[in-house]
Amino acid sequence: MIEQFGYVAAFILAGILFMAIVLTLARLIRPNRPNEEKLSTYESGEAPVGNANTRFNPRFYVVALLFVLFEVELVFLFPWAVVFRDKSLTAAAAGWSAFALVEMLIFVGILALGLAFAWKRGYLDWEKPEIKSTDIESPVPTEAYDSFHKS
């Protein structure tokens, strides 16, 4: 029984050793000629503007995770759709197509429930920035602004 773990350990060790050899060999073979242009920050072909260490809204991560979740759903749906279209499977088993359809509807339903849960909990809502009004001396009376906004 313990020898089976030895096989797994040998494969893991061989994989780590292979990666170490390949990466070391690549480092020795590749050219290394850095210059100012190569060492500069690349930002979609444009010169970078501002500091790269700025903070941004962490809700981007939630949206990215939901995107990945539904992309994985498509990875599961595509092979199912290809097999579901096969007429020979439908001819071989009478209830197979109905079973496959119900199974996939359950799968999509569970994902829809997860999306509804995230929506209900407010994970998809963006924080609205607080607009600060500034007091500006204007020659136009405030009644003119009020009448303009009412019409």
Rank of each mutant, 00 (worst) to 15 (best):
A64G: 12
V62M: 13
N32S: 08
L105F: 11
R27M: 12
A47P: 06
E46W: 05
S97F: 06
F84E: 01
G95W: 00
L89C: 01
F99H: 12
N51M: 05
G45M: 07
A100C: 04
E71K: 04
L105M: 07
R33K: 13
T54L: 14
E46K: 13
S97N: 11
V63M: 12
L25K: 11
P79I: 01
P58L: 00
S88E: 08
N32W: 13
L25N: 03
F84W: 04
L74H: 05
L65G: 04
E43Q: 09
F60Y: 15
E73Q: 15
A93P: 02
P58I: 08
V72R: 11
T90W: 03
R33C: 03
V75W: 06
E37K: 14
L105V: 08
V102G: 06
A81T: 09
R27N: 12
L77N: 01
F76T: 11
E103P: 02
L28A: 12
A92C: 02
E37C: 09
L74T: 07
T90G: 11
W96Q: 06
R33A: 15
P31M: 00
G95L: 02
T41L: 08
V83K: 09
K38M: 07
V62R: 00
E36P: 04
T54R: 13
R85V: 14
A98C: 02
N57Y: 07
R33V: 10
K38A: 13
G50S: 01
K87G: 07
W80I: 08
N35S: 14
A52T: 08
A52S: 10
E71Y: 06
A81P: 00
V49K: 14
E71C: 11
R30L: 15
R33N: 15
P31Y: 00
T41D: 07
F70V: 01
L89R: 03
L101S: 13
A64V: 05
A92E: 14
R55L: 14
R55E: 10
R27L: 10
A26M: 10
P31H: 05
A92M: 08
V22C: 05
R85E: 09
P31D: 09
T24K: 06
I29T: 09
L23H: 14
E46L: 10
V102W: 07
A47I: 09
K38L: 15
A26D: 03
V22S: 13
Y61F: 15
D86P: 02
L77I: 04
L66N: 10
R59Y: 05
L77F: 02
K87H: 10
